[in-house]
Amino acid sequence: MSFADKLTFGGADGVPNRRRRLFGVSIGLVYVLFPISSLLSGQVTGVKAVWGALSIVAFLVSYIATTLSPRTFYERGRWTYQLLGVTTAIAVVSALVFGDTWLTLPVFTVVLYSFTLQPRGALVGMVGMLAAVIAAGLLSASEPGEIVIFGVQVVTLGLLFIGVRNTRVLAQQLRDAQGEVARLAAADERLRIARDLHDLLGHSLSLIVLKSELAGRLAEDSPTVLREVRDIESVARQALVEVREAVTGYRQRSLPEELDNARAVLRAAGVEPHVKVSGTPLPDLLDGLLGWAVREGVTNVVRHAGAKRCEIEVTYDGKAATLEIMDDGRGAEPRQPGSGLSGLSERVLGAGGSVTAGRAPKGGFALKVRVPACVEAPA
C-alpha cells in the first residue's frame, strides 16, 4: 500500500496517535452546535426533537468511533469503513429529515473523509456530501443563500483538510526515506569495511602463509627453525580463517531481514510489494545468498524499473531454493556496471546455481535465482 494510505496524525513506528488524530478531526465538532441549538431554542419540538437528539448522539458516537478505530499507516481497522458508512448514513438522513441547520452534519462528515480516505475517495465523498446538502436544502425549502453557504463550506473544508493530510503524508514519507537512506549508507559502509578488511588482511596473511611454507622447506635441516616457522604458518592460517569469518559476518544478509527491508524500500519508492515465501527456513548459506539476491534485485527495481508493483517469491523444496523478483516496469536491464547483478551472478554460479534475468513475459523485468541445497561457502 502506498504512502497515500497513511493516516495524517501518526505516532512512532507507523502507529497513529489516537489523541492527536481525534484532536485533528474534532475541529469539525463546531458544526454540531447548529442542530443542537435548534433543539434548545424550540425550533424542533415533540417526537421530532427526541429523534433529533438521538440522531445527534448516534452521529457523535459513530464519528468518534470511526476516528479512534485501530489502524496503522498501511492498514485500516477492521471496522473503519463500516463505521464511516454508518456516520455518513446518519448525517445524510438527518439532513434530509430535519433540513435547515442540520445541513451542517454533512459538512462535519467531510472532515472525517479527509483524514480517513485516500485523496480520490475523499473527493468522491466530498461531492456526495455536496449533493446531500443541496438535496436536503431543497427538500426542506431552506434559503438559497444558506444552501450555497453550506455547499461552499463542504468544498472548502474538504479541499483544505485533504491538503493538510497530504502534507503530513509527504512529511512522513520524507522521514521514512531519510531513515532508509541512513540505513543503506550504514550497510554500504559495513560492506566497504568488510571488503577492505578482506583485501588488506586477507592478502597479507595469505602471503605470510606462503612465505612460511617456503621458509619451512628451506629450513628442513634445522628442527628449531623449522618448528618456529611452522608456528608462524599455523598462526597465520588461523588468523586468515578468523578474518574470513569476520568478513562473512559483516557481509551476511539474512533472508527474512532482507525481505522486510525490501518491503520498506519498495514502499518508500512508491512500489507496491507482494512477497510470498514457502518452504523456509533455509540453510544458513542459502539464506545468506538469497538475502544478498533480494537486496540486489530490489535495488535494481527501485533504481531502474520505474515500476508500480513488484512480486518477490521464495520457494524451497529441500533440494533447491528459488527466488523470483518480477516488476511491471519498463523491462529494461540496468546499464550501470555497478548494478550488482554481475557480482550476484558470480556468487550464485560459484555456489552451483543459476541466474536468469531479462524481460518478463507479461512486461517488466524478471530476475530468477536458483541454488541447490548442497551449496558450499564461497571462497
Rank of each mutant, 00 (worst) to 15 (best):
A239E: 10
Q82S: 15
V57M: 01
S142E: 02
L174F: 07
I162M: 12
L266I: 04
L40T: 15
V302W: 05
V30G: 14
G297L: 11
T67N: 12
I208T: 06
A131S: 04
P223L: 13
G10A: 06
Q178H: 12
V155Q: 10
A293W: 00
A131L: 08
P361V: 09
V164N: 10
Q172Y: 05
V133Y: 07
L266R: 02
A268W: 05
L285A: 02
G364W: 02
L83C: 06
L130M: 01
V111A: 08
G85L: 13
G85R: 11
G24V: 13
E245C: 04
V92Q: 03
P223R: 12
L207I: 12
R18W: 08
R295D: 15
A122Q: 04
R267Y: 10
L170V: 13
L184K: 02
A219L: 09
L117Y: 06
L200N: 14
K308T: 13
Q153V: 03
G331D: 03
V61H: 03
V32D: 12
A215K: 02
G340R: 01
S2H: 11
A366T: 06
R370S: 11
N261Y: 13
L266G: 00
V155E: 11
I134Q: 06
A194C: 14
V61E: 03
Y316W: 13
E313D: 15
R303F: 11
V209N: 02
E228A: 08
G216A: 05
C310V: 15
D176F: 08
V93L: 14
F365L: 07
V127S: 09
L259W: 08
G121W: 05
A307C: 00
V148K: 00
Q82D: 14
S142Y: 00
A185M: 06
F3Q: 11
Y74V: 01
V181P: 08
A351R: 07
A307F: 01
P334Q: 14
R76N: 14
R230T: 12
N17I: 02
C310R: 12
L349W: 08
G352F: 10
S26C: 01
G52S: 09
E296M: 11
G52F: 05
R19K: 13
L138R: 12
E272N: 12
L7R: 10
A171K: 13
S342V: 05
L367I: 10
F9M: 09
A236Q: 07
V371Q: 02
L255I: 13
F98Q: 02
R303P: 10
G338M: 04
A95T: 06
Q173W: 12
V61Y: 10
D5E: 04
L105I: 10
S254E: 11
T67P: 14
L259R: 04
H274R: 14
L200C: 12
F108D: 01
A332D: 15
F161Q: 01
A269P: 07
D327L: 00
V294I: 13
S55C: 12
F98N: 03
M1C: 08
S254I: 05
L266H: 00
L259H: 05
L157E: 02
T104L: 01
A351V: 06
S55I: 11
L290S: 00
A182F: 13
L139W: 06
G11H: 09
A182H: 14
S204C: 01
A91S: 15
V271L: 04
V314C: 03
G350D: 13
A239N: 07
G343V: 00
G14W: 11
G331I: 03
A366L: 12
